[in-house]
């Protein structure tokens, strides 16, 4: 599951253009002079690949994915050949289409992420819930994979 997330912005920052960097620097310096809000532009987080957390509990694996603005019907979760696929589409709101935009920072379009399952998951008992823009998938482990406590008897 040690997949690296591809960040399209990374390649752009690696672009060896001093001019590009210099311009950015100047812009930022000017901005910070006139703005009280001293946030770095780069802290804006929005990529086409949704961020995930994967946690392992004693009884299950839990996958959480950030999907703001994506409704239940626009996400599809499948398992096949030990691969968990989460795919879907973030649609632009109809009312905002054709409007006069000042800023577009949020990412739209389709996304897909695949994870190889460890093989110790009950594939027919996987549950998924979406709430407040966060998808939570619970993958219960098979009995054999759960840790067992063996009591040591002293004789």
């Amino acid at each position: 599951m040690a997949l690296m997330r591809w960040n399209p912005a990374y390649e752009l920052t690696q672009f060896p253009s001093d001019i590009l960097n210099m311009q950015r620097h100047i812009n930022r310096t000017f901005d910070s002079l006139f703005r009280e809000d001293q946030f770095d532009e780069e802290t804006v987080v929005s990529t086409r690949t949704p961020a995930v957390d994967i946690a392992e509990r004693e009884d299950a694996y839990v996958v959480k994915m950030e999907l703001p603005g994506v409704s239940k019907d626009d996400v599809k979760i499948t398992t096949q050949d030990n691969i968990l696929t989460i795919c879907g589409e973030k649609k632009q709101e109809k009312e905002s289409k054709g409007a006069n935009y000042h800023r577009i920072e949020r990412a739209y379009g389709s996304f897909q992420r695949l994870f190889t399952l460890p093989g110790t998951v009950k594939e027919n008992e996987i549950e998924a819930v979406i709430k407040d823009g966060t998808l939570v998938i619970t993958l219960p482990k098979v009995e054999d994979a759960k840790p067992r406590t063996i009591e040591v008897q002293v004789k």
Partner: peptide
């Protein structure tokens, strides 16, 4: 962190749409 936002203008209003998953 600074959340990503879309800002658009219609005839009668400005609309901000801010991604704040899990909040």
């Amino acid at each position: 962190m600074r959340p990503a936002a879309d800002v658009y203008e219609s005839l009668e209003a400005y609309v901000l749409m801010i991604d704040m998953p899990g909040a």
